[in-house]
Design a protein around this nucleic acid. Structure first.
Lengths: 354, 354
DNA sequence: CCGACCCAGTTGAACGATCCAAGGCGCCAG
DNA sequence: CTGGCGCCTTGGATCGTTCAACTGGGTCGG
């Protein structure tokens, strides 16, 4: 043990900083015990006599010791890292969910002892990026966010035996056995529609996504359920378009002319912004003349005039549930539920009536 | 070499997936060479005869071998990970720069062989989070984004000898020796102001941040420089407030009453949204009656009616420069410039005149 | 009195890649 | 024949941690 560095303290207290951080052996030497005992002090404190534990702990504090990740990872065959693929930035949309989710996830993961490694799959192949990480054992598991539309990620990851938790239901595969967490979009739009019904609206239109979007159809079902519940018809009141401001503008413009709704429920804030644009062009005032509700409670909804009522996903709760599923997957098999569906709420602003 | 796993192929081609990925030794055996040769094939290909290289390469491909990160990290004392602290999500603002920057950074880093580890410093102490990562040698370097207002991160990291690159100038410390990349905010607002001057405006107001914000004052200087260049006065034309929509609303309302500007340049899109609110409340039309320019080209600017002209930071270029500085810092000391200042451009939309 | 068992530690061997030194072997030039 | 060079092998050490096996003493039941 003739390491020439590290024994002189690693914290900022002493005058100089040594080249390399202290190791288990340094701590052991200082505490007068063996390496293994120090290791136990860190990982299985109850194996030590109280007195010894104190002595080791003091040595740890004095040296500012923290286990070297690489060494620990090598031995335990785990990195305590979870991979999260960032979906491409959509310019010109109001998408804000990802941002909030990432923050919540990072925060929650840290509590559980995990760090988040982000990577991107911008290129053509959505699987690009996963491969390297799996094969080089860089992450312990993945968080997968886009499970809709027959997304191949889930299948691919299962084949590779790569553990993962999904934010999003396995729409296409009821046999799926992986853990997932999702938000009940239908409940959200139902909430929104009821809110408008309670305010006296009876002609409430829907602007959503293309029919092959499972999420879009789910959200749409909440709107139609709420209307039918009150014996109101939905025919001619729905439009399904791309998720852009201009699509929302055109769709709302058509609906206003044809179906004469007094309120709009939209599958996204982006589409709702399109509705607001139509209203502005026609000199109509959102909230007073026509009510509008969006989905996701994005920054746009928060700052736009006069404030956009929007369905807000409980992303903090999602993150907590995802991390819990992760711990279950990687640690002891407590085996909680396979899937968990959370309920969103509604942030009410002036666009649905002041 | 009696590993019972790994020799049967790791890719999804064969029927079953072995429990552990192939190692150097597996590849060596299959290619009929020694471990050392495989290692050389991966790290110093030019040491091998072309023919041998091909053989080893084929074995690598067939087994789907990738070096185990933990083992490599342990030996080379590097993780090929860079840490990025996410700044807290600001609800109710239009902040979008971080999001775009993260994406660009992740993308660029990957090209350079680095992955991005995100962590959060939500708590009271902005240094929280850094400490663990430094001491457990989890990351090779940091990307620091908030270097303004006497932020302690830079100083702290330097003391710990933790390599880092800053996105943002070391405003308070001209002696700083760390590499940094920044965007010339003043050039941006000058561009915006000139754009308005060219459109015939002469009474152009400024809404910015508190005086102790170095970034805010920098952006302000671009506005005043452009005005003075044309012999126009700035007195009574500026307001300095918090970065919220409501502050922007109040400030613009006051300025409209007192100074009668025909255009506004703002330090952020959030403030610009406040101006749009004032205009809406007064029945004024942005772009036709009063021109407005924001800063950051956020999603809000892109989707709001009738479209918000905004200064756009070249975050992709920033990311490229940051990663280059990183490589310089961690690899061979090519030693490019210490600091680099990039110029933003202006995304013109209807709010500054259709 | 003997074997089983617990306690509180210690010791040696992995984990998988990298790095280094020494050496083998075939081949060509001097 | 010798020396040198190109290309590869061999053996070993190393990074810092954790795991499995073991030690030496004490206690307990039969």
């Amino acid at each position: 043990m003739d390491r020439t560095t590290g024994a002189s303290g690693f914290t900022g207290i002493s005058g100089h900083v040594p080249l390399s951080p202290p190791t288990l052996a340094d701590v052991a030497e200082r505490a007068g015990v063996s390496r293994q005992t120090v290791s136990n002090a860190v990982n299985n404190p109850d194996l030590l006599r109280a007195e010894t534990l104190v002595r080791v702990q003091r040595a740890i504090d004095e040296l500012g010791y923290l286990p070297n990740r690489a060494a620990r990872n090598l031995r335990t065959r785990a990195s305590h890292l979870v991979g999260l693929r960032l979906s491409p930035v959509q310019e010109g949309t109001a998408n804000a969910a990802m941002d909030r989710f990432v923050h919540s996830l990072v925060w929650t993961s840290r509590e559980a002892g995990y760090h988040v490694l982000v990577f991107s799959g911008e290129g053509a192949d959505p699987l690009e990026g996963y491969d390297d990480l799996v094969r080089s054992t860089a992450v312990d598991a993945f968080i997968v966010t886009d499970t809709y539309l027959g997304n191949p990620q889930a299948t691919w990851l299962r084949q590779r035996r790569a553990p993962f938790v999904a934010f999003g239901r396995p729409w296409d595969d009821p046999e799926a056995r992986h853990p997932w967490v999702d938000v009940d979009g239908a409940a959200g739009t139902e909430l929104a529609t009821r809110h408008l019904l309670d305010r006296g609206h009876t002609r409430i239109a829907w602007i959503g996504w293309r029919k092959d979007s499972r999420i879009g159809e789910d959200r749409r079902s909440g709107w139609s359920r709420a209307l039918k519940e009150r014996g109101l018809s939905t025919t001619g009141m729905a439009s399904r378009v791309e998720d852009t401001v201009w699509s929302g503008r055109d769709a709302s413009s058509h609906l206003l002319d044809e179906a004469r709704p007094t309120a709009f429920v939209c599958a996204s804030d982006t589409l709702a912004m399109g509705v607001l644009r139509t209203l502005a062009e026609r000199g109509l005032h959102p909230g007073r003349d026509i009510a509008v509700v969006g989905f996701d409670d994005s920054q746009v909804a928060q700052v736009v005039y006069p404030g956009l009522t929007s369905v807000r996903q409980p992303l903090e709760e999602v993150a907590v549930a995802v991390v819990r599923a992760l711990e279950d997957l990687l640690g002891v098999p407590t085996k909680v539920a396979d899937g968990l569906l959370l309920t969103p709420d509604l942030t009410i602003r002036a666009s649905s009536g002041a």
